[in-house]
């Protein structure tokens, strides 16, 4: 089995190598502040700032939705999402955006939302 041990060892070394290189794919959730500093692509988690207005007009550009989000530090910033306005957006509890800071706005091309209950309604429906 010696030759297979050697190959297994090689595989383990390769995996460790892959792991180290893969750590570049992993990042922490940034805040608007760190996003401004890094100027690179980051993920930001936060909640919708309901006090500020939202802009979405599919007749002008369906892939452009502007809103404000508060990050984990509580800082609210303008967000330009290059996607249609997601369903149930107002109900979201948490938003995760991927993108970068550009001219004071966070320009995102990916969004993930966490909604209060994805599949279940808490109320009991009455017969009509």
């Amino acid at each position: 089995m010696k030759s297979s041990y050697i190959i297994a060892l090689v595989l383990i070394l390769v995996s460790i190598g892959i792991f180290i290189s893969a750590s570049a794919d992993v990042s922490t959730y940034a805040t608007f502040e760190t996003a401004i500093l890094s100027q690179s692509r980051v993920k930001i988690a936060g909640t919708l700032d309901k006090k500020k207005p939202m802009e979405y007009d599919p007749t002008v550009d369906a892939d452009r939705f502007v809103f404000h989000m508060s990050d984990s530090e509580g800082v609210s910033n303008k967000v330009v999402l290059l996607k249609p306005k997601p369903q149930d957006f107002e109900r979201s509890e948490q938003i995760v955006l991927t993108g970068a800071m550009e001219n004071g706005a966070f320009v995102a091309d990916e969004i993930l939302m966490k909604c209060p209950s994805k599949y279940k309604e808490e109320e009991i429906a009455l017969r009509k």
Binding site: D25, V26, S27, T28, Y29, R41, K43, V96, T98
Partner: peptide, 8 residues
Amino acid sequence: HIGRVIED
């Protein structure tokens, strides 16, 4: 602890 995520 600040959670880590895979970007893409």
